[in-house]
Simulated assay, not measured.
Amino acid sequence: MGTAFRLKTVAVAAFLAATAYLPLTAHAGLFDDEEARKAIMDIRSKIEALQRDVANKSDKNSALTLSDRNDNLQSQISALRGQIEVLTNEITNAQQRQKDFYVDLDARLRKLEPQQVTVDGQSAAVGIPEQQAYDAALSQFKGGDYKGAGNAFGDFIKRYPQSAYAASAQYWQGNSLYAQRDYKGAIAAQQNVVKSYPDNPKVADALLNIASSQAELKDKAAAKKTLEQLIAKYPGTPAAQTAKDRIASLK
């Protein structure tokens, strides 16, 4: 009876040790990788201990009882191995989610990186939102929405005053105002191009637009003076040739 009692005590202890880890399954999703790995190692240690108990408990006089206990312990070992599979799968899924997150983050950051573009013959770095804002405003102008385009170019200049597109935005804002017959506003916008960006290729066209606005305001003297200034400063440009033709019509 002493031997049977000791075996019973050992079996109960083994059973309690095994079942102590059963709640891990319910909480496996809450573990991080390191916690899951530690849990797996603990479970494996318990499996090894249970297997040693099964191997050591070989009492011939209690073969049937030990067989029942052996089946019970083997069942607990299988359950623990199942928990290891669950935790291993959680680790794999967590690693994949982390990898996918960083891949997606890298793709998003690349979309926000400035791109090298050529603006008015010069290479410049332009951010994606900046490029999109300029393109949207220019698309409005080309679509005939001159009021919307004028407002959009004005907003662009305020948001990106140092942009490589700043001179062009100012120029197209002047054209948008001219198209709305706001000739004074057009003159002011194009004068900003001439003063702020004297080396920009659009200055000659800005002067031509100023002369056209002055002519619309019936100020022929001012228009003629602007055209002469254009011809003198930018003699080889298409705008200068157009200026020569217009001077004749102002006489």
Rank of each mutant, 00 (worst) to 15 (best):
Q214N: 12
Y234D: 08
R52G: 03
L105V: 04
P238I: 03
K184P: 01
E113S: 08
T242I: 03
N70E: 14
G236A: 13
K158I: 08
Y171L: 12
L109E: 08
A39N: 01
D53Y: 11
D219Y: 08
L16F: 09
K202M: 05
W172H: 11
E216Y: 09
N200I: 06
D145V: 00
R52V: 05
F153R: 07
A36Y: 12
I40S: 00
L24T: 10
F156E: 02
A204Q: 13
F31G: 01
S213G: 05
K195S: 10
L30C: 04
Y197T: 02
A63N: 05
D145G: 03
A49Y: 09
L16A: 10
P198T: 04
R6D: 10
R6S: 11
Y21T: 11
G144P: 01
K225T: 15
D106G: 02
S123G: 01
L105H: 01
T9A: 13
G2Y: 06
G121Q: 04
G148R: 12
R81D: 15
T65L: 11
A55S: 10
T65S: 09
S45Q: 09
Q74K: 13
N89M: 12
L16E: 15
K142V: 01
I77S: 02
F101W: 14
K111I: 00
Q180R: 10
S45W: 06
K46F: 00
S196Q: 13
K225G: 03
A18Y: 04
D33H: 07
F153N: 06
L217T: 07
L80N: 09
G148C: 07
P161D: 02
F5H: 06
V203W: 12
D182T: 01
Q173H: 13
E216V: 01
S123T: 08
A63C: 01
L112T: 05
K218H: 15
P198C: 07
L30D: 15
M1F: 08
D59T: 03
K142M: 05
A152M: 12
T237D: 06
F15R: 15
L16M: 11
Q162L: 03
A79N: 11
K147R: 14
A20P: 02
I77L: 02
L138F: 10
Y165L: 02
G144D: 01
S45R: 11
A232T: 14
N89E: 14
R6N: 12
L64T: 08
A125M: 11
R97H: 06
D53H: 11
T3D: 09
W172S: 02
L138R: 08
L227M: 08
S196R: 12
T3P: 00
Q180P: 00
A20F: 10
E90T: 05
Q173Y: 08
A189G: 05
Y165R: 09
S67H: 06
F153L: 07
E85C: 01
L64W: 06
I157W: 07
R69W: 10
L208A: 13
T19S: 14
L208S: 14
T242N: 05
Q162I: 00
